[in-house]
């Protein structure tokens, strides 16, 4: 693309930075196979596969996993609904207070998670709402809306309004236009937003500690293992699994929105 080439110093700095970003994950994988479960000794004294079997037979891990999946599914569904509606409204109209509403949508992730968490918790306390599945979902849906919104509005901005007018000129009513013109255009963006929302909810821990009460989602299970380790390699097995579960939706979301620049990472 360019005739000039990067200097050696710049290349080393860039490569070193990328290495810093990726190398640590490799240690998670390595320690999942170690035979030493009392410390983080390096290099591992021996390698074994037994921790995968141990993790498989632990009921507490399965319970935490299912709770996380259920929460993520419901929160994602809510976020897709609310985020799409907000994107559609802000796309089709200019009105007073529009910027304030945009700010309101972004705020739950712009402010540190602990503020969202404690704000929700003090409200649940004030209103005497007991902690439940739904209190976790409430928190998650709130900060997932923006992810869907970002993806949906980026796609809408690239959708020509004349497409909708053409459909209506051909005799389609508003619902038909939505079903046969707008939705097919929007589908991959919504899918990408939904997957990112799922990944975000699936490993959220900061807000969840404030809204979960006694319930244990997978990240909360992991946090308690980090603070008071029992079988350390089992935690690694779960961590490897979590990496796989979050990587796949992210890669898929990237493929779905490639070239449209709508998967805004800074929006997390």
């Amino acid at each position: 693309m360019r005739s000039e080439r990067a200097g050696l110093g710049l290349r080393i700095a860039a490569a070193g930075g990328l290495l810093y970003l990726h190398l640590p994950i490799a240690f998670i994988l390595l320690y999942a196979f170690t035979t030493e479960d009392k410390s983080y000794q390096f290099p591992p004294p021996g390698l074994t596969l037994k921790w995968f079997a141990v993790a498989w037979n632990r009921q507490d891990i399965w319970d935490a996993l299912w709770l996380s999946v259920e929460v993520a599914l419901v929160a994602t569904a809510l976020a897709i609904l609310l985020g799409t509606l907000a994107a559609a409204a802000l796309w089709r109209a200019r009105f007073f207070g529009r910027d304030a509403i945009t700010l309101l949508i972004v705020l739950p992730i712009a402010l540190p998670g602990i503020i969202t968490g404690i704000a929700l918790r003090s409200t649940f306390g004030l209103l005497d709402i007991p902690f439940s599945f739904w209190t976790i979902v409430t928190g998650h849906a709130t900060f997932c809306i923006v992810v869907v919104y970002n993806n949906a509005i980026a796609r809408l901005r690239r959708t020509s309004p004349s497409l909708l007018e053409a459909a209506m000129d051909l005799g389609a009513d508003g619902f038909q236009t939505f079903r046969w013109v707008l939705l097919p255009n929007l589908a991959t963006a919504l899918l990408a937003g939904g997957m990112l929302a799922f990944a975000l909810s699936f490993d959220e821990v900061i807000v969840t500690t404030f809204t979960a009460g006694q319930q244990t989602t997978l990240p909360i299970w992991m946090l308690s293992e980090l603070v008071r380790p029992r079988q350390r390699p089992v935690t690694n097995v779960v961590a490897v699994f979590v990496i796989a579960v979050t990587f796949l939706p992210i890669l898929l979301a990237y493929r779905l929105t490639r070239g449209t620049e709508s998967m805004h990472g800074t929006g997390k």
Partner: peptide, 15 residues
């Protein structure tokens, strides 16, 4: 850059 950004926060702290 995106993969570390979106992958599990807790797992990366654990690493």
């Amino acid at each position: 850059v995106m993969l570390p950004l979106w992958s599990s926060y807790l797992v990366r702290v654990y690493a």
